[in-house]
Structure formats: C-alpha cells, structure tokens
C-alpha cells in the first residue's frame, strides 16, 4: 500500500471528502454531509472500515474547526447557554462532544453507505 492509500488521512479519498463536505454543507442543508461523504466514498474509498473511519474523522475535523472558531471568537457566549438549554448541565465540552458524535456518525455512515453501494454495483 502506498502512502496515499485511500485508507489513510492523506489520500485522494480524504481530500475529495474534505472538499465535498465543505461545499455541500455551505450550499445545502446539514444532512448533505451524508450525501457528500457517500459520493466521495463511492468514488474513492478503499475499504469499508476505511470509508467509515475517514468519513467520520474528516467530518469531525470540519465540524470541530468551525464550531471551535465560533466558540473562540465569541468567547463561548452562546456555547455555555446552549449547553444549559440542552440537558448538558451547561458544559461546553459536553456540547462539543455531542456535536462531534452526531457529525462523526452521520459522516462515517454516509461514507460507508457510499462504499457499500459501489461494491454492490461493481460486482
């Protein structure tokens, strides 16, 4: 396997995934992250495990970066409040965790779906 195997973080798959999830989510509703991940995995994912892991990881990374930027530049003004609105006891960290679990799960499952659909068609 090369260093750019499509099961690695630095791979064409991961790169395409990154580009698509940002583009899709900027233009479309939030659930387009699943579609974007599926398309990237359909085209380039190397294995089921790789699709899920990279799909989850890249989506978590993107969500974390934007969420953290929002949190940081507003000095957490809304994060703690929302962490109190949701039953998270006002913990900003817990809110980040919940957010990233949702992002990771949808991204990973989307990518896995894309990979499995390709396997089905290829046969």
């Amino acid at each position: 396997m090369s260093a750019f195997s499509n099961n690695k973080i630095f791979s064409p798959f991961a790169g395409l995934l990154l580009a698509l999830v940002i583009l899709f989510q900027y233009l479309l509703p939030w659930w387009s992250m699943a579609l974007a991940s599926a398309i990237a995995a359909f085209l380039l994912a190397g294995s089921a495990g790789g699709a899920f892991r990279i799909g989850a990881f890249i989506n978590i990374l993107v969500w974390l970066a934007i969420a953290f930027w929002s949190h940081w530049r507003s000095e957490g003004i809304l994060t703690t409040k929302i962490a109190g609105v949701l039953p998270l006891g006002g913990s900003a960290i817990a809110l980040f965790v919940v957010t990233l679990v949702v992002g990771g799960l949808i991204g990973g499952l989307g990518a896995l779906s894309g990979f499995q659909v390709r396997q089905l068609i290829k046969k």
């Binding site: 989510q25 900027y26 509703p29 939030w30 659930w31 992250m33 993107v62 969500w63 934007i66 969420a67 929002s70 949190h71 530049r73 507003s74 000095e75 957490g76 003004i77 809304l78 994060t79 929302i82 919940v98 957010t99 949702v102 992002g103 949808i106």
Partner: peptide
C-alpha cells in the same frame, strides 16, 4: 438536532464575535 448542532447551519452560527 442535526440542523441545530451543525456548525454550518445551527446555533454555532448565531454566536457573535466579541
């Protein structure tokens, strides 16, 4: 929750810069 938690569309975008 999906829309609400998404940093692209959710409450995160309502936090105003200091």
């Amino acid at each position: 929750m999906g829309n609400f938690l998404s940093p692209f569309t959710g409450f995160w975008t309502n936090a105003e810069a200091i």
